[in-house]
Each structure stands twice: as C-alpha cells, then as structure tokens.
C-alpha cells in the first residue's frame, strides 16, 4: 500500500496581526505549521501503513521544517515545493508531481484551515481520473477497495471505491501522534526532495485581503439584573 499525503504548510493563524492603517494581515515573522486536518490525514496514512505495510510519502506545499515534522511523525520520505497559487494552480501542480509517483491511495485534509476552501482533494482526484471520497470520519482498506464513512449534513454515508482513490479526511477521524525525540532524530536520515514546478495558470485572482472589522459595543455589565434587562430589550 503506497500512500501519498498532501500537506499544506500554513501560517499559525492566531499569530497574524492586523496593520491598523491598511487592515492587511501582517505575516512577517509569523511561525508556520502543518494545516490541522493534514496532520489527521498523515496520521491515518501511518495507521494504514502499520496495518497493511507499504510506504507513506508526504507531498508538501511548504518548507523543510514541515517536511521534518511529517518525517518525524513517521512518513518515509517527503517531497516539497514552494506553494503560491490558487486552487486550480495548486491542484495542477500536485497532479503533475504525483504523475511521476507510484501510489494506491492519496489522502488530503477536507480543507486547509487558512483557505478553508475544500477544493484541492476533489480537484486533484478529477485531474488524476480517480474516485474521490470526501468528508471521511472513518476508513478501512479491504481487498483493493477503500470503505469509508462520510459525514454529511444530515446523515453519515458508508461508501466504497476501488483503489487507487483519493480520500479527504475530517478532524474527527483520529488524534495525530506527537513524535518522540528518537523519531525526531531518526527523521534527519530520511530523504527530502525539493521540486520546482513551473507556475501554472490560475483561475481566480485575489484583489484584496482585509481584516473584518468588529464593531461591537463591548459593554461590561455589573450584575445579573442588568444582564436580564439587556436580554429582554435585545430579544424583541
């Protein structure tokens, strides 16, 4: 079972400040980390490998530090590239890299926590011409098939597809492991390959990113009677 996990390195969103004059996000000096759900995707890949054997390759839009983290968690090798495109461009790049790799299964997060666009998994599967199973909270491999439980609005759906397939995972699928010191040391022996794909065509352009202004009153009330009065007047 050869698994590719697509991982995006993002800014630690809590550390992003707002430039008060321009309302732009300030990202200089902000630490970066692996997008939350992608850690769940990697964890799931590692569990499958532990059960069925095979390899786990981390395909990372981001820098070496993210690769080191993925390798410490247990990925066998990492491929990194420096990411800077819209969803169309990113899916195109990932597909181009994956075309040269042998795989049975691809795992993505259902969404990256900075963009939260839910796009890359479905787009990538479409380009590669393989089935896609989205919003997965449980998965299992059986005889060349993947069986999953998907979390949809008002129902859970049990579904299956033949391999090779692409699965996008939800946060609830597992609890990602924290690497031990030994694993961190061990990771330095593993290979990180850096690739530089050509800049792909984009589908959308971003004109501006501005902080949302919170215009709230921020009145602190002293006692419950006052609170009750406010509630009564605000509810009608």
């Amino acid at each position: 079972m050869d698994i590719i996990v697509c991982i995006k390195q993002i800014f630690d969103l809590g550390q992003i400040m707002v430039d008060t004059a321009t309302k732009h996000p300030i990202t200089e000096g902000v630490a970066r980390k692996i997008s939350d759900f992608d850690k769940n995707a990697l964890e799931e890949a590692l569990r499958i490998k532990e059960k069925h054997g095979g390899t786990v390759l981390a395909l990372i839009g981001g820098a070496k530090e993210a690769a080191k983290e993925a390798l410490s968690m247990g990925a066998d090798e990492a491929v990194i590239y420096s990411a800077d495109s819209d969803s169309l461009g990113t899916a195109t790049i990932l597909a181009e890299i994956i075309h040269k790799i042998k795989y049975d299964l691809i795992l993505c997060g259902e969404a990256s926590i900075d963009e939260f666009s839910f796009q890359i998994g479905p787009r990538l599967a479409e380009t590669l011409g393989i089935p896609v199973l989205t919003y997965v909270r449980e998965m299992e491999l059986k005889d060349n098939e993947v069986v999953v439980e998907r979390n949809l609005e008002n129902r859970y759906e049990v579904a299956k597809a033949r391999l090779p397939a692409l699965v996008t995972v939800a946060k609830e699928i597992n609890e990602p492991r924290i690497p031990t010191l030994l694993q961190i040391l061990d990771a330095s022996k593993k290979t990180i390959t850096e690739v530089s794909p050509a800049k792909p065509a984009a589908g959308v352009e971003t004109l501006s990113i501005l902080a949302i202004e919170m215009k709230r009153k921020e009145v602190i009330l002293k006692d419950t009677e006052n609170l009750a009065r406010v509630i009564i007047s605000e509810k009608s």
């Binding site: 819209d86 969803s87 169309l88 899916a91 666009s117 839910f118 796009q119 890359i120 479905p122 787009r123 990538l124 599967a125 479409e126 380009t127 896609v132 989205t134 919003y135 979390n151 949809l152 609005e153 065509a201 984009a202 589908g203 959308v204």
Partner: peptide
C-alpha cells in the same frame, strides 16, 4: 457538502477557477 465537492471537480475539468 455535496455542492462543495462537485464545484471544484467541475472547475478542474474546465481548467477554471472556483470560489467556495
């Protein structure tokens, strides 16, 4: 959830952008 799966899939088929 269905809509957000199919929209990017269709966009990819046409080499088009998609905003979710």
């Amino acid at each position: 959830r269905l809509g957000k799966e199919i929209a990017p899939r269709i966009a990819q088929k046409f080499g088009a952008g998609c905003v979710t």
